[in-house]
Design a protein around this nucleic acid. Structure first.
Lengths: 153, 153
DNA sequence: CCAACATAGGTGATGCGTCAACTATTCCGG
DNA sequence: CCGGAATAGTTGACGCATCACCTATGTTGG
């Protein structure tokens, strides 16, 4: 057991800032989306994936992979979204174990209405506050950290 | 309703990177802490606040404020932590409505054991991957965004 | 062809976060 | 000193995330 390399003043300031930023930013984005379209951020994510496709219909597994979600989490979430009429499950002829998930009209309307407001909020809270250099720095930082995350599983 | 100012390529890359980073980083930090000390990140936060004090005993309200948590969330969480023997509730003589929260020996041991490993993980995943300039940039970015968050409530 | 295994996906239990409502106490104006 | 408002904290219901397990179907080697 070697000595713990504690964070120095600078690192610790950056870390506290990062934690505070992401906590508050996530909470705010969630609140705003909930307020003006009744969707949660996770509903939104799911709907985005379904909309991104040419076919508005995806296998559950593909959706899980695209979202990087556990299949069980997705399954539960889809059940709730289906209950609210945002998506429907459809049988899959080629593989009877599988299922397709399709957007409903209501789901499509919901995301088309939510997206502009969401982007506007992100722009207002984040990108309008940052210089171009900072935007690039943020992307670079994310890349470094993500590389390390993948490197170590 | 004016035109939506969508994100350009650069912004959108930064945003995707940020989202991926924080999602994966949070998940990883959580998993590691859970694995090597049985604490969740939120348990850890609570214990840190209790340890930071001179007196290892805080009013629930003070704790809520320090953590920036809703009192109800904190109340639920403390109930679970108490059940696991990490903290105890104590009566408050000066104000019979109130309660003190104190660290137990088990709670103290838990955080003392968890902290070094946690810092080591943060260092490995984040600070060892970044240059000094990037660390400062991250802090600056967080400040800008946090300022805007506070400005707009 | 069939037994063993893999794969797609769902289920139930439990912990967590939020909201609204509630209880018990304290404070404060008259 | 008393009645109403404010405050401290808890509770219950519900949506969400995770874990372990389950079912049904498909695949494959013998």
């Amino acid at each position: 057991m070697t000595e713990t390399r504690w964070l120095d003043e600078r690192e610790s300031a950056a870390w506290r800032g990062y934690l505070a930023m992401y906590t508050q930013l996530a909470a705010r984005l969630h609140r705003e989306m909930q307020a003006d379209s009744g969707l949660s951020l996770t509903d939104f994510e799911v709907l985005v994936r379904l909309t991104d496709q040419d076919e508005p219909r995806l296998r559950v597994g593909e959706l899980a992979q695209a979202l990087q979600w556990e299949k069980s989490r997705l399954s539960h979430h889809l059940a709730r979204m289906q209950r609210r009429g945002l998506v429907v499950r459809q049988e899959c002829p080629e593989d009877a174990r599988g299922a397709f998930i399709a957007l409903t009209g209501k789901g499509r309307t919901a995301i088309e209405q939510a997206a502009p407001a969401h982007v506007e909020t992100v722009r207002d809270l984040v990108f309008d506050q940052l210089t171009e250099d900072q935007v690039d720095a943020l992307a670079a930082i994310a890349d470094c950290v993500l590389d390390r995350l993948n490197e170590t599983e």
